[in-house]
Simulated assay, not measured.
Amino acid sequence: MNDIFIFNEIIAHLGLLELPLKGRSYTWSNMQDNPLLERLDWFFTSADWITSNPMTEVLP
């Protein structure tokens, strides 16, 4: 079993939901002329948190 599969299984088992990143698709760049763009940061929370705090946002 690969690590990503295990990670995804844990996220699903815990019932966590991803909070989307507002304003950007990527969180890292190598800052070159032809940049590599990657999403390194992910944010998860529970359904209870979203219900209690519906205006929660993740900003870069």
Rank of each mutant, 00 (worst) to 15 (best):
L40Q: 10
N34K: 10
D48P: 00
L59D: 14
N8V: 02
L40M: 10
R24S: 07
I50S: 09
G23T: 12
L19R: 00
L16V: 05
I50M: 08
T45K: 01
I4N: 11
E18H: 03
A47D: 15
N30H: 11
N53V: 06
I6P: 00
S25N: 13
T45V: 05
V58A: 12
W42L: 11
M31Y: 10
T27K: 06
I50R: 13
L59V: 12
E18V: 00
A12V: 07
V58P: 05
L19F: 00
L19Q: 01
K22D: 15
G23S: 12
N34F: 09
S29N: 11
R39E: 14
G15L: 15
N8G: 03
D3S: 05
V58N: 13
E9S: 11
N34P: 09
D41I: 12
F5D: 04
P60V: 00
R39Y: 03
T56H: 08
L37T: 05
E9N: 11
N2Y: 05
K22R: 07
P54G: 05
P60W: 01
N34R: 12
W42K: 02
M1Y: 08
T27H: 05
S29W: 11
M1N: 01
M1W: 03
P20M: 08
N34L: 15
M31R: 01
T56E: 10
E18M: 01
I4P: 15
I6A: 04
S52T: 07
G23K: 03
N8Q: 06
T27I: 07
M1I: 01
S29F: 10
T45A: 03
L21M: 09
F5G: 02
P60T: 03
M55R: 13
D33Q: 10
N30G: 09
G15W: 14
D41S: 09
E57L: 13
P35F: 02
L36A: 11
L40V: 07
Y26L: 12
L40K: 05
L19A: 02
V58S: 13
F5M: 06
L36W: 04
D48V: 05
L19D: 02
L40R: 06
T56K: 11
M1C: 02
L17F: 06
E57N: 12
P54V: 11
M31A: 14
A12P: 13
L14Q: 03
M31P: 06
D3R: 02
P54R: 14
S46H: 09
F7I: 01
S25A: 12
E9P: 08
N30A: 09
E18K: 04
D48E: 15
W28D: 08
R24A: 08
W28N: 09
I50V: 14
I11K: 06
S25P: 13
L16D: 07
S52V: 04
T56N: 09
W49V: 04
R39N: 07
I10S: 05
T27Q: 09
E9T: 01
N34W: 08
F43V: 08
I4S: 08
T51R: 13
L37A: 11
P54K: 14
